[in-house]
């Protein structure tokens, strides 16, 4: 399998008085067609890593290569799905407008745009909703729109930043299966960040386990559960249970990093028996995600 993505010695430090190193030298490679999940504790720099790969944040050091080419600027055949659908869909555009939006900047002709948007919406189960507005849809449906918007560009690499963290459990299962189905159809390479160990095992061909910030790769776990997965039986299978245990244990036994930024969780790992897979489920967004680019542009207007 050819290499799709190569990340080598990626480091990112947020500047400022209390400089915070979010990522401390992360290297890994993703082959084409693979669904890789990145799991790690909240605030460990997962989202920063994703943003560095997408060139939304320029890493302090290290390199990202897409199909062997060093990445400079947001690559063309890449799409991102963010956690917060409510803040990433454009409220003044209809569902179809949102899905067509990235196609416009790719100069796809009008008729083809419409066709792509409608067929992609159908694939995510939203036929008939194309003329609605995001605020008229439920959270799960809004995230479907965001997924459709990313898929419509037919990206070679799809980055997903905790895409299912803001929907209820039932919807989450549906969306997870939707992702697996769509991925089987389209053969997209996917890199998905999550803080949910179970989700990472259920979805991934492979799980990269990150340490607390500054994040490093603690383990690279192959998930040999096959292509066909089922929310009930897969999660009951011996291999699934073993893998989630293995990943949880890796996270619990990880040596404390002497990072500058993990004051909020210091000491928590030392209590034996406290951390299980659901213990990682503190659903707050990683502390620094996105806030880096905010300060410069958002003034203090009352």
């Amino acid at each position: 399998m050819p290499s799709m993505l190569e990340v080598s010695e990626l480091t990112h430090t947020y500047p400022g008085q209390q400089a915070h190193t979010a990522i401390g030298g992360v290297s890994f490679e993703v082959t084409a067609g693979q669904l890789t999940c990145i799991v790690g504790p909240s605030g460990c720099g997962k989202s920063t890593l994703l943003r560095c790969i997408a060139s939304l944040v320029t890493p302090t050091a290290g390199q990202v290569r897409l199909r062997g080419q060093p990445v400079r600027g947001v690559p063309e055949d890449l799409a991102v799905v963010f956690q917060d659908y409510g803040r990433s869909l454009f409220p003044w555009m209809s569902v179809r407008g949102n899905v067509e939006f990235p196609l416009r900047s790719r100069s796809v002709p009008r008729a083809r745009r419409r066709e792509l948007a409608l067929s992609t919406l159908e694939r995510v189960g939203l036929s008939g909703a194309e003329d609605k507005y995001p605020w008229q849809l439920s959270g799960g449906m809004q995230q479907r729109v965001a997924i459709a918007r990313a898929l419509a560009c037919e990206p070679a690499l799809l980055l997903m930043d905790e895409p299912f963290a803001s929907v209820d459990a039932q919807t989450r299962f549906e969306l997870e299966d939707l992702l697996l189905r769509v991925r089987a159809e389209q053969d997209t390479t996917i890199l998905l960040v999550t803080h949910d160990i179970d989700e990472s095992v259920y979805l991934g061909d492979r799980v990269l386990v990150l340490s607390k910030s500054p994040a490093t790769v603690l383990a690279d776990v192959a998930v040999e559960l096959g292509q066909q997965r089922d929310q009930i039986s897969t999660r009951e299978s011996e291999l699934f249970v073993r893998l989630r245990g293995e990943i949880a244990r890796t996270l619990r036994n990880a040596p404390q990093n002497r990072g500058e930024g993990d004051h909020d969780e210091a000491g928590e790992d030392e209590e034996p028996g406290e951390v299980d897979s659901s213990g990682e489920d503190r659903a707050d967004e990683p502390a620094l995600a996105g806030s880096d680019s905010t300060g410069s542009e958002r003034g203090s207007t009352e």
Binding site: L56, V74, F82, P102, T301
Partner: peptide, 25 residues
Amino acid sequence: TIYAVGQVDEQLLESARAFRVSRAQ
């Protein structure tokens, strides 16, 4: 107007940036 410009959600702008939308656009 001043207030509204300052209120544009960073996430919206980032989404647009992720789709390679230029600064002017």
